[in-house]
Amino acid sequence: MIAYNGQHTVHRKGGQIYWRAEHGQIEGINNGYAHFTSQGLMGEDQKTRFSIRFGVKGTQLYHINQSQLRVNTDQFLVMNHETEYSVTSEHSEDATMLAFCFNENFVKDFVAYHKQTQAGLLDAFALYDLSKPLPEFPLHTLPVTEELRRRIEHMIGNKMSTQPSEVDDYDLFSGMLETVFMSANASLNVFKDQEIVKRSTKVELYKRLSIARDYIQAHFSEDVNLNELSRVACLSPYHFHRAFKHTFGITPKKFVTGLRIEKAKWLLLNRSYSVQSICNDVGFKDVSSFTRLFTSYTGQTPSVFRNESRQVVSSLV
């Protein structure tokens, strides 16, 4: 099921998102956004325009080029033009996402503008040379900043509460692109204390660390280890561990453990599996270490957490 809360109706045509305005004209070449709600997305193979994907509720799993990226409510994913992908919802639960899709020439113009010097902006031919291909945005998730969250809320509010003819789409979508690129650049500020001079080096290191982080999020229930993660990031184990901790404020091992504990909490509340089964499902090798770590993170054993949480839920029903 696809639901759209706005002034237009969403249609699918050849794997693309198209917009049909009230006068009936197909507007597939224009910028637009879609609000998807699905009870267990089916993983249909699709091809996208340049788009920005946000998780609103639940977690979406994007399958792209044999990689799997988890996008939750605190992250967003920039997908390049004509990226082939499929998406499913984690646990087959209800998942909601926002997809902002951009016209190819709109993005080219935006990028060309920000790459030009002030003198170059006066050269119309340089500015509007749209024959060049779109730049490739690194394929990894990025955190949603407060500024970006406010921009999304403002954008949705304008689209939903105002007649289409009264909305300045160009201003809204250019503002969204500016905020997204600023958010991506802000993520690089974590390197300010590291002895890295070239910005291109900062970008490359953050890209590699983000790829490893996304790999952890997709495979945390498996036997991931430091050597494997450092190979994914194309860094030495020492360099990877040091850079990961400095960048994300947590060691790779603790990051894995935290994801496993959160998954275990969800299973304890929503499934009737035994503690032993949950221990195995989330990637722990034995119940004793699972119980010890779970207790250190939550202050309760798995069994106590399940019983007390269910009692609280029952009292509210």
Rank of each mutant, 00 (worst) to 15 (best):
R260F: 08
T179H: 02
Q163E: 00
S296Y: 01
R208M: 12
D193C: 07
I261C: 03
C234Y: 13
R199D: 09
T96Q: 09
V87N: 04
L77G: 11
E84I: 15
N225F: 00
H140S: 14
Y238I: 15
K115H: 11
F110S: 06
E222A: 14
V107N: 02
K245W: 04
H91W: 13
A21P: 03
L139Y: 03
R242I: 03
N307R: 13
Y33W: 12
P252T: 08
Q118W: 08
F191D: 06
K192M: 11
T201F: 05
V111G: 00
L235F: 05
F294D: 00
L229T: 07
Y128N: 06
H154E: 04
R310M: 13
L139A: 06
F240V: 00
E228S: 05
S303V: 14
D45V: 14
I196K: 07
R12G: 06
H63I: 09
D214F: 08
L235G: 07
S303T: 15
K245M: 08
A3E: 09
M182S: 10
H154M: 05
G15A: 04
E27N: 13
Q116F: 00
Q75Y: 10
H11V: 15
S296H: 02
V224C: 02
H241D: 10
T59H: 07
R306C: 02
Y33G: 01
A218P: 05
I64Y: 02
K132Q: 03
W266F: 15
S221Q: 13
A21H: 13
G28V: 10
N189H: 15
A21E: 15
G299K: 00
Y170W: 11
K192Q: 09
E166H: 02
N270P: 06
Y297K: 11
F181C: 12
V197I: 11
A21I: 07
I2K: 05
D45T: 12
N280R: 15
D45M: 10
G175W: 00
A3W: 12
M160I: 02
E136I: 15
L188F: 06
L139V: 14
L209P: 11
K13R: 09
P138T: 10
V317G: 03
F106K: 02
D214P: 11
S174L: 03
G299V: 01
H23S: 02
D74M: 09
H154K: 00
Q116H: 07
I278Y: 10
E84D: 10
D214C: 14
V144E: 04
T145K: 04
S92P: 01
T73E: 06
A264W: 06
N30Q: 12
T141K: 08
T201P: 06
N225P: 04
Q276Y: 15
V275K: 07
I250S: 00
M1A: 09
S314M: 06
G32N: 04
R271Q: 11
P164A: 00
G58I: 09
I17K: 10
R151P: 03
V56H: 05
H140K: 13
E166R: 12
K245C: 07
N158C: 05
H91Q: 07
S288R: 14
G14R: 07
N5Q: 05
V10D: 00
S174C: 04
S315R: 04
G28Q: 10
R306N: 03
S165H: 14
K202Y: 09
Q60L: 13
S86N: 04
K245E: 14
T301E: 03
F305I: 06
Q194L: 15
D168Y: 02
D45A: 08
D281V: 10
V232I: 15
V144L: 08
A124F: 08
E262L: 13
I156A: 03
K192H: 12
S187V: 10
